[in-house]
Design a protein around this nucleic acid. Structure first.
Lengths: 136, 136
DNA sequence: ATTGACATTCCAGTCACTGGAACCCTCATG
DNA sequence: CATGAGGGTTCCAGTGACTGGAATGTCAAT
């Protein structure tokens, strides 16, 4: 099966599949002409990674998860731990975005949005308010 | 005022301030020795950008917003429009993350997380489920 | 022989920094 | 006066996960 077919089947762009090959997530066979030749097992891996990526797992997580997927002696606890960690990160992101959304919504509501220069949004940005930030 | 002081005052890392100079967000004066010398106006800009960035605005948005901030003839409608667009993007991200969170929570709940290999999380990843994805 | 649709590799760019190397300046101390 | 600490400077490379483009190769059909 050629790469275009693999792309259509997995739902991934051709470029991305080549990239996954380059970083060693997959390792499809090659034809006499150097073209990649995808087997069902390669397709499964691509689908797997596509699913994991769509849930926001990093490539490195995908690598680990793929290894577990192929390991008959795996313990589901390992998978669950990775998933839980990732969920925590997602929820942290959501919390941060919700804070942003709230602040921004409030400012937008206050802003007349007309032809005059007065603007609570800009006013707010001009006032520090984040002095406590640790610059690391 | 030296860069370290500007960093403490603005809550931004020194490196980031140099970067903002490099990309032309700020343009502080220089001493005889080549050191940056920050005025109050530079500090205001840094604080402004720090605030906008903390709400997730891109650097390019910050550039536009800074220009509006300094434009006495601005129209608040311009600011509001940018803010609204950004809010929409934030909310789209939140929606996507919520979907991820829901799916992942569900899978985690189903997973025993013990020493056995059976794992609904991996099972789910192995099953396409995203055939409809447009690879672009 | 040429066209078109495939495929390949390699290089550069994205975004907003961040780390590190190599070096300069200034002041206080021994 | 040499040295060291603690500022500053520039430039280069790396991050994550692709994405775009150029230059080139392959294959079947016209």
């Amino acid at each position: 099966m050629n790469i275009k077919h693999a792309a259509l089947d997995s739902g991934l762009p051709v470029k991305t599949i080549r990239y996954y090959d380059e970083i060693g997530l997959i390792n499809p066979a090659r034809d006499h002409n150097g073209y990649r030749d995808f087997q069902d097992s390669d397709l499964h891996k691509l689908t797997f990674v596509a699913q994991a990526r769509s849930l926001g797992f990093t490539i490195e997580d995908c690598r680990t998860l793929l290894a577990l997927y192929e390991d008959d002696a795996r313990e589901s606890a390992d998978v669950k731990r990775i998933a839980k960690q990732h969920l925590t990160q997602i929820q942290a992101k959501i919390a941060k975005l919700n804070t942003m959304s709230d602040t921004l919504s409030h400012l937008i509501n206050e802003c007349a949005g007309d032809g005059r220069p007065d603007c609570p949004i800009l006013d707010n940005f001009g006032k520090s308010g984040n002095k406590g930030n640790a610059p690391k």
